[in-house]
């Protein structure tokens, strides 16, 4: 197997090269003591312009919401692609392990009644308070998706209604774009959240449309991730 030897040798070379390049980067790194101009600008602008104390959310859901929109699109495309990708194929060689049909057991089944509301509330909190404290649509959506995963574990036999979930994510996606257009029509530009009143800094109802965007994002991400999980489970 000379080919394998060559491959391993070159791999070692590549890894060594990467290690060298990385070590140069680390060596040149100096921990800054102050923020750069742009970052400092965000820290100033986000509370002032948007009334959003969580600057990261301000960036994710307002200033760089075009990125976020793209990111949602990526997740959406993946969730959609998994359907055809994981469908049983016409010409398989390996057979599938059949899905378990029995239930997950008494304890887990009862436990999920107790835990799901907690997870849901936490997820909702993270989504809705994303503009005030750490969190936001992505994180909260992911937390809710974890809850849904838990539901899947607790009820092994039950299927998630993928159709409904994908309709939900689609509808919410359209709303997201619509919110963007509202920004274009009623405020400064596409995805500008300030078409709703800014409100008072630190209050729940503040930050223009950011809580709304966060909510949409949370629902969408939760639905998308659930679809992803269900596709893998199914």
């Amino acid at each position: 197997m000379t080919g394998r030897t060559v491959h391993l040798g070159l791999s070692a070379l590549a890894l060594a090269g990467l290690a060298f390049a990385f070590s140069r980067l680390v060596g040149a790194h100096v921990e800054p003591t102050a923020l750069g101009q742009l970052a400092a600008g965000y820290i100033r602008l986000s509370p002032e312009e948007l009334s959003v104390p969580n600057v990261v959310t301000g960036i994710l859901l307002a200033y760089r919401s075009f990125d976020t929109l793209g990111e949602v699109a990526v997740l959406y495309m993946v969730a959609a692609s998994l359907g055809p990708l994981l469908q049983p194929m016409d010409n398989p060689v390996a057979s599938e392990t059949p899905r378990l049909s029995e239930n997950a057991g008494e304890i887990i089944h009862s436990g999920h009644f107790a835990l799901l509301p907690l997870i849901g509330v936490f997820g909702a909190y993270v989504i809705l308070f994303g503009h005030l404290s750490a969190g936001g649509g992505f994180q909260g959506g992911a937390i809710i998706a974890t809850g849904i995963e838990f539901y899947m574990i607790a009820r092994v036999a039950s299927a998630i209604n993928v159709k409904a979930f994908s309709a939900l994510e689609s509808g919410v996606g359209v709303l997201f774009v619509a919110v963007g257009v509202f920004g274009l029509v009623f405020a400064g530009g596409f995805l500008d959240p300030r078409f709703l009143p800014a409100g008072e800094l630190g209050h729940f109802v503040s930050g223009g449309a950011i809580p709304l965007v966060s909510l949409l994002l949370g629902i969408k991400v939760a639905a998308e991730l659930s679809v992803v999980l269900e596709r893998f489970r199914g």
């Binding site: 921990e31 800054p32 003591t33 990261v56 750490a134 800094l201």
Partner: peptide
């Protein structure tokens, strides 16, 4: 990361 920095959340 900025030396001694905290999360960029104003409170």
């Amino acid at each position: 990361y900025v030396q001694g920095g905290t999360a960029p959340i104003l409170d």
